[in-house]
């Protein structure tokens, strides 16, 4: 139950106060209302990581590529040995 799922922010309602900032998030077509209070910088079109109805982080697409650079490092390593 601790898994968090990434989805795309497709609408934002600012609400009366940051506490109630929420939005609609699409998880490959299924839409849910999600609190955006903990990701104040999340904007339309961003991917957020959602856990039990609350976005807990923004998914950084750049960092996702790190895994591949790590692989390259390993390749280099193999050549050196």
């Amino acid at each position: 139950m601790c898994l968090a799922i990434p989805g795309k922010v497709i609408a934002i309602h600012e609400g009366e106060d940051v506490l109630f900032r929420k939005g609609k998030v699409s998880f490959s077509g299924i839409t849910r209302e999600v609190s955006l209070c903990m990701v104040p910088e999340a904007a339309l079109g961003d991917y957020v990581l959602v856990h039990v109805g609350v976005a807990i982080g923004i998914v950084n697409e750049e960092e996702a590529k790190q895994i591949f650079s790590y692989l390259e490092q390993m390749g280099d390593l193999e050549e050196l040995l």
């Binding site: 601790c2 106060d17 506490l19 109630f20 609190s35 856990h51 039990v52 109805g53 807990i56």
Partner: peptide, 19 residues
Amino acid sequence: VGFETTAPANALSVVQAAA
């Protein structure tokens, strides 16, 4: 229930209820 992952959502429910 839950680990640190779930605690913020549960806390938020209390803060929202209070507000």
